[in-house]
Design a protein around this nucleic acid. Structure first.
Lengths: 341, 341
DNA sequence: TAAAAAAGTTTACGCGCGTGAAGTTTTCTG
DNA sequence: CAGAAAACTTCACGCGCGTAAACTTTTTTA
């Protein structure tokens, strides 16, 4: 192949017979050039498969096309899945998503924010760690960069999108009360406001039904939810400290740990005859279809949350106005009845 | 605050009383400037928290500090965990890791490679999709960019790091044969060479022990492993088509599906009395401690694989020589005995 | 303490592209 | 078909920083 490789837009422009500024215009918005010109460029594009130097582009553009995504814990398939959907939406809209995970650690979240900032992003979608977050830092970040938060509401940025925990917890509490022993609520020290809100929602729902709420909190602050559920579950079962044989866990990953605990302690879980306890979760986590028994839970509306988050972000980016008020959008959960409760 | 914000290195240099070229040197390698100078810069750094414009830096540097990481499926905690460890190592070495997931799809892997290429990375760590990969494209990529592949060996790049499937499968086959009924081997259509190699390793191990290998393959090509294990497991149990009540699955995620299948079909899994079947996996997946019963499996030496991958990459990057020969490093697995087999 | 070596300063250029101004060509409008 | 509008071309500058050359200052070495 004697084709000398096209390296710069200058070279590409002369090779395609179009001036460089026009080629530049094309890459910024293919629709901004005449159809005939567009065709000639795209013809040359096929021949040389040139791509503008991304660093030079971003250095000169007033606003980059970068969109930062920060999730608290990527090893959690829940967030992995959300991130995947967000990435896709951004790409389809012509943006460049850049994914960061906080790995459950304050310092990682801080680093992610710092790195992200140096990328001068056009916008950011952040699911904060929660309690471990440097909230002041995120707030400052959101002042400079259009930011939508999701999953964990820290009252930061122009918009928050998440689940309506009061509705969803209400659903499952009502179901559990109606179909068997009143549930107690198990939580580990809350890493974020969702956990707090779910506890509160549990209490309210129980009181609404004229029941007495029973809350068990145990363990230490960690993102190793399954392990906590397993360890504390075994302990509570062994010590017979459970106020109820129906346990509502504040999320599915904890419930998965509880299922393991019950199994290991020889207790049969489910709502049928011969079952010693019921266990329910919250989130409809990707794994919860495969637990033994399959986990009864409340689904979060993943795709709506993602779609709305991205839409809101684009709105904010385009309007450019900082209203200063936080717009909160909450989606209802749906009861997912399986066999564990 | 009358502190006008420092935006450029020029401004920062004059604010700290050091010339810009020296400041530039500092950011490239803090050790390359005199200790007294370093202190003055770091003092100013605390005061103004300036960071060089990353786009300008990368545009001008001969070689960037970017390191690309591509994993086939980030929603799999196995890869999420590997990615996390790789990121850490790169950061500690002063590089900038950029993570991509192929989401199990050929097109995503291609996009990731294209995007990564435009980032002019100093090196790349790639776990190819496998069969779905555009191998020719990855090969071309590896010709231009120092590349280490891991997990799935496609004979690409200068080095591969992974698990010794023959050793690890041998281990568990030997264990299963020794302690109960001879295992059959369950696989879904292989997405990558690991699956192929594991099947072969199973056959060899069985023959070495004078047993007859029995292989079941079912389903279609997918990354939805648990679902496949569940669905096919239920079918095989219902139709009584299992050649053995001991099932060795080609990985843990499939085994998790099988555990669910057995549960749903009312079969007790384990090696104790009253158990109808044994199920074993491979990988020591993060979840496998929490299955019911806990999954017997063979561990992959995650951390060694990660460490070695990164080390090899740095070697290649530093030597700059393309030897043209593929250096393969394989780590042995360890038997992880739990209750499922 | 003088000479050599190391580190810093000043000056200058270029990376590849976005973008604006001014002029030219093409396309659209009536 | 003329005039207006749109699109293109040429020319030029600057983004922020890496880096090289030539010179000056500080530190090390003997």
């Amino acid at each position: 192949m004697s084709e000398l490789k096209i390296q710069t837009m200058e070279e590409f422009a002369s090779a395609s017979g179009i001036s460089r500024p026009t080629v530049s215009k094309y890459f910024n918005d293919p629709g901004s050039v005449r159809a005939s010109t567009r065709e000639r460029i795209e013809l040359a594009l096929k021949k040389f498969d040139f791509r503008p130097n991304i660093f030079a582009v971003n250095q000169n553009r007033r606003n980059t096309k970068n969109i930062g995504i920060i999730v608290p814990y990527l090893a959690d398939p829940f967030f992995a899945e959300m991130a995947r959907m967000i990435e896709r939406q951004c790409i389809d809209a012509g943006y460049w998503p850049i994914l960061f995970s906080s790995h459950g650690q304050r310092q990682s979240e801080i680093s992610a924010l710092e790195t992200l900032r140096s990328l001068k992003p056009a916008g950011a979608l952040i699911a904060p760690l929660g309690r471990a977050s440097d909230l002041e830092m995120i707030r400052k970040f959101a002042e400079d960069v259009p930011t939508v938060t999701f999953d964990s509401n820290q009252k930061i940025g122009e918009a928050f999108v998440g689940s309506n925990n009061f509705q969803s917890i209400g659903l499952i509490v009502e179901y559990l009360c109606r179909t068997g022993e009143d549930p107690c609520f198990f939580e580990i020290p809350p890493v974020n406001p969702n956990a707090l809100r779910r506890r509160k929602a549990y209490i309210e729902a129980m009181e609404r039904l004229g029941k007495t709420p029973e809350i068990i909190h145990a363990g230490e602050q960690t993102w190793d939810f399954e392990q906590m559920g397993l360890q504390e579950g075994k302990r509570l079962i062994a010590e017979r400290k459970l106020p109820s044989n129906t346990v509502l866990c504040s999320n599915d990953r904890i419930a998965i740990g509880w299922l393991a605990a019950a199994y290991q302690m020889g207790l049969r879980v489910g709502h049928g005859p011969g079952c010693a306890m019921r266990i329910a979760g919250h989130d409809d986590h990707p794994w919860s279809r495969f637990t033994c028994p399959p986990l009864t839970t409340v689904s979060q509306d993943y795709s709506s949350i993602v779609e709305t988050s991205v839409e809101k972000l684009f709105e904010i980016m385009n309007s450019g106005s900082k209203s200063g008020v936080l717009e909160e959008t909450l989606f209802d959960g749906k009861l997912v009845l399986r066999e564990s409760a």
